[in-house]
Design a protein around this nucleic acid. Structure first.
Lengths: 234, 234, 234, 234
DNA sequence: ACACACGGGACCTCCCGTTTGT
DNA sequence: ACAAACGGGAGGTCCCGTGTGT
């Protein structure tokens, strides 16, 4: 029998609440719900993730869900928030030495992204990209939330590049913000394509290209980065 | 049900079939359905586009819809096919002079993409990217269709780059295919972000960066392209 | 993915009209449609058999179908008619020698039924029983048609038994008509259970019991039948 | 659509949920749903019974229906289960005195069946037979469920007959199991025909014949049963 | 006689969110 | 804080039958 009816991307789900151990720990419960939401929406997207699924994944019932979150959209927003914050937390590690060479910091950022791309069995996916694709055109408040997260990333990179422009000799009159958006596009595009082609290595290669591209913008890129050409390393 | 909070990603739709003018022109009807599907899905995505909406947009009833297409997924697949074919048709114009300099062809391709990005009031969106984002992780046959379209694009660019390597002096031992995926990532990432930020200009700027990047790969890029630096033009 | 939506008992069907050879033979076309209807309804019943399936099975399109038959119900009625007539045709062979012993004729009838039960790989099913089950309580005209076919069978058997009562010595004051309904119940019940248990042999065994039962009604059943006890034969 | 000819096997249904008296009594609600399903399916069969009808009959909304049952098939299965269990419960009354004569028990069983057949204004119908007829050929899991219920009945009767064979003198080397299937066929066939002919009395007559048939199998059937010949009683 | 686009209308399933109860 | 019955309302699919065209 072929698949008819609504296009199901998920398994039907029988509620199965946590095994009678009611923890009564609100923040913990919230966290579990958000985690479940993130896991599911990264795979299925917003519309195809149902509240029931989230509850099943978090071992809770809908009663709890709607006690903690007003709507599905609300939890999606929070999940995206948490997801983005976690990302920014990781990225921040690249700049822990503020006196450092900003170009070096940028390369460390790329290192972190590269590790992220390689760190999972499945290619990495971004909540912001996922929710943007689905809701940007129809849900303006969600769109604005996505824009804010995108801005946060690029502002971080813009700062690094602006600093780099003061400490290094830019080859052309590049606008730091533009380059930041370029890098973010590479990042989002790579994740999208990587997920589709189930190919994490391409993401890594792209990041290497991005790295080379950044180097090519400055006449005096530190030699340590020069070697990191887009050619294949053994 | 007070509808409060319900995340409506779709518009309620009044069916209103074509005013008794039964055109009885199947290919035309199919085309209209596919057009409607493309228009709607580019805005709302797959899941949030309902068959009712498609029918209303195409002035047809749901009953008839399923005479032409087995499922919503089927029409989405065909719409993507049509979309991609149309794109490849446009892109092919860049290579109409096969004896041409392949680098010149690649730049013409970027011109075409740039025009596409500017040509619409709303930022451009790609069916392949959209369907990938929503369905890659859960619908393997759809995923494979997306992969094929992605491959088609990059194979085209790979050919251009491979030719360029024979006619120009590559600065580094670049792999044509890798660069093609890089360019495709920029393209897809730009469209995704452009849609979210409602900013077509950024897409154009990114394509300019991509252009500069391509030039930077060859020591003897034709001078005519050299001027097209990523800096802002007046 | 589990089966959702409407409970499908059939395969979805793509119309595939006869290979361009339009026979234009109305009676033949009707026959094919009726045959297809019979085949399908014996398996799926009335409601679960769709007009599209019938057309596909008969290699025709709905256009033809509704040219020949007003409604699905109409063809079902005709199919049942044809089915019953064919059955009565077979049964009639038991009485070709009208001067014969009526009890002998009845036993020949049971022989024929027994052969029918064994003659197919799948246990035999009866259109009358099938349509009765589904429509008797809701569609009175269909119900009456079923009743007529049932009456036809039992009237035939009633005649045989009535004759037998004149030529043999009934053990008790049996009413021929009652025994006929009893035998028909055994027949219908056996087919129903045989279909469910996928067991044709049980039908045959039941017919053997029925035979013994008939014999037990007469003190002077011809000795040739006496041996046919319900015990298992080697 | 002029609705002409359209075979309506269902009644159009206005949803009308319980008048704001939300009983919030799940087992009771389930029971009502199952009862409604049984009532409706016994009349219309499986396919022609709609979930809407069931809900209307149970004063519930469709939304709630699927909280209690996964699919229409699921509720049909449960309804059949309940139906069969109830039947077996009744039948068990025939054997409450286990030390009793097994033949007497069997006759009491036939008494119970006879009372069942007479007890309703409409002729009695069996869920097992109905679901078998419609689904045996196409839904194997349903078919197996039906087979189990059939086996349960015949095993019960087989036990009685086997006991009878030890306590009485069988006329022929009858196989208890075969006779049980014979009796079940009579029972199912009678119900099918009775429903179609709207004739409960024929069922009762058939049971009387069955009774006589059972007696005829034993040389020493208790005399009290002897009188119960298939002839019409005043 | 037949093909086929199309309409109208369910039908099953599902899903978000509310309400009642513990 | 959590459980779970329930409501309202789509959403996708299908199906019978019509009408136009060949």
């Amino acid at each position: 029998l072929t698949q008819r009816g609504r296009t199901r991307t998920y398994q039907p789900v029988r509620m199965q609440p946590r095994a009678s151990k009611r923890s009564r720990n609100a923040p913990e419960t919230r966290r579990q719900l958000i985690d479940a939401t993130t896991r599911l929406m990264l795979r299925h997207g917003f519309a195809a993730t149902t509240v029931d699924q989230i509850c099943a994944e978090a071992r809770l019932t809908k009663g709890s869900f709607f006690h903690h979150f007003e709507t599905k959209e609300a939890i999606a927003r929070e999940a995206m928030e948490t997801f983005a914050q976690a990302g920014m937390g990781l990225y921040a590690a690249a700049c822990v030495t503020p006196t450092d060479d900003p170009l070096k910091q940028l390369h460390r950022l790329l290192d972190i992204m590269s590790e992220l791309a390689q760190g999972h069995p499945d290619p990495i996916t971004c909540m912001v990209g996922m929710l943007s694709q689905e809701m940007a055109a129809t849900n303006s408040s969600m769109r604005e939330a996505c824009v804010q997260h995108m801005n946060a990333w690029t502002e971080m990179v813009t700062r690094l590049l602006a600093n780099a422009k003061t400490k290094h000799r830019p080859r052309v009159d590049l606008k730091a913000e533009d380059v930041a958006w370029m890098l973010y596009s590479i990042w989002q595009g790579s994740m999208l394509i990587g997920k589709t082609r189930q190919d994490s290595k391409m993401i890594v290669r792209n990041l290497r290209h991005a790295r080379a591209y950044v180097n090519s913008l400055f006449a005096d890129s530190p030699s340590e980065f020069k070697t990191n050409t887009p050619t294949e390393q053994p």
